[in-house]
Design a protein around this nucleic acid. Structure first.
Lengths: 212, 212
DNA sequence: GTGCGATGTATCGGTCCGATACATCGCGGT
DNA sequence: ACCGCGATGTATCGGACCGATACATCGCAC
């Protein structure tokens, strides 16, 4: 999963580890807190060894100014290779069981702008199926095994069930949008947060800065 | 976390591994799918080595019938020890940072029936704080960094933000209930699932079958 | 000029997962 | 009478990821 996320982010622009972590946190903030360095750096080395990414030269503009006075060793910038792009396309296209768990789905969804529509649909439906199964499990427990459980545990299940139903509805809308029409945004009733600009941006397509 | 969950479950009745996994799935179904055997069995051994649990004799009633014809080796039943109960009380009472992440909070909450009110309150408020922070992060991204992100990523953040707001409200109600009054259940509008019995059972206290 | 928070790279031990292996039991089908 | 097959049950192994920790540099506020 981390591998896929890194490859996806480096496709937007070259970055060093620290930056990668921050971008990752911004892009996946809804899913996971922040990736640990204990995972990040070893994975970067693994990707580099596999040839999916390479170290890029630091400060490409106006080089040679004060060249190597303090043996400038900080900031290792990585960029994705052609093989890395192929690898990303392969990973984003194929769907194993882990594609539908919380983290896996989140990462795939975050890169939907780089995914073709058929795959998007497949992933959304797979996720829906998985959440529906969880929902049925919770309903079973709340129905059949309710008397064996204490009130707190029951309350936890109810909250979980509610979240499942909500996510299924969300997925339904995304699937409907995906099938006919385009815009990835779900119609919203009350505009819950703040702000109201930037609603319904233009259809997917590739994001800007594909090749700076 | 697994350690706490196992200790908590074994406090209700002795069990073997397979059963433990199923009970765990029922109790924590809203939080995590099912614990892996690759974690369960090593943890059981660790707990046994530490003296928190012991192997209990299988088939206590009507023993000696067909004693050892096929060398009956299956089903290792574990029971909690006095030290194990102390350990549980200690773990459930102290709160580190991991107490407030999704899994940690879920496990603590699932055993609220065995937790004193002050601790319950502390944990609920800690969780609320954590979710509020995540919520603020998402609002920031949706407000300030929105133009850098594609429509799918934004939709993911919005869904996450919605879930955060919902959980905060849920926690608010639980906290209010906890402070004055008793019943752990949150007032519900539509009764979404099925069934309507077993609503608002008597105040917490210990669950049944403390000592069979 | 000095401390301090942000930036930045890196490792280590530990927890947990997913795949896999293997053995037994009860039951239905043929 | 036999066979298979799904549920029950214990167990291990490699790998992914986390949390704590260490350490070094930079800019800037006091």
């Amino acid at each position: 999963m981390l591998e896929l996320a890194i490859l996806g982010l480096l496709q937007e622009s070259p970055m060093h580890g620290y930056e990668l972590r921050k971008e990752l946190a911004a892009k996946l903030g809804a899913i996971r807190a922040a990736i640990s360095y204990g995972s990040l750096y070893p994975t970067l080395r693994r990707l580099q060894a596999a040839g999916w990414i390479t170290e890029a030269a630091e400060t490409p503009a106006t080089a040679e100014e004060v060249p190597a006075l303090t043996s400038r060793r900080g900031r290792v910038v990585y960029k994705i290779t052609a093989e890395g792009k192929e690898r990303f396309a392969q990973l984003i296209g194929q769907a194993g069981p882990e594609t539908y768990d919380d983290t896996g789905f989140g990462v795939h969804f975050a890169f939907f702008a780089r995914t073709d529509q058929a795959t998007r649909l497949r992933i959304l439906e797979g996720r829906r199926r998985k959440i529906e199964e969880r929902r049925e499990g919770l309903r079973d427990v709340l129905g059949r095994a309710a008397e064996r459980l204490d009130a707190y545990t029951l309350e936890l299940q109810r909250h979980g069930l509610d979240a499942c139903e909500r996510e299924v509805r969300w997925l339904e809308e995304l699937i409907a949008n995906e099938r006919s029409g385009r815009a990835p945004t779900v119609p919203r009733a009350g505009t819950v947060g703040g702000r109201r600009d930037n609603d319904s941006p233009p259809p997917p397509g590739e994001s800007r800065k594909e090749r700076p």
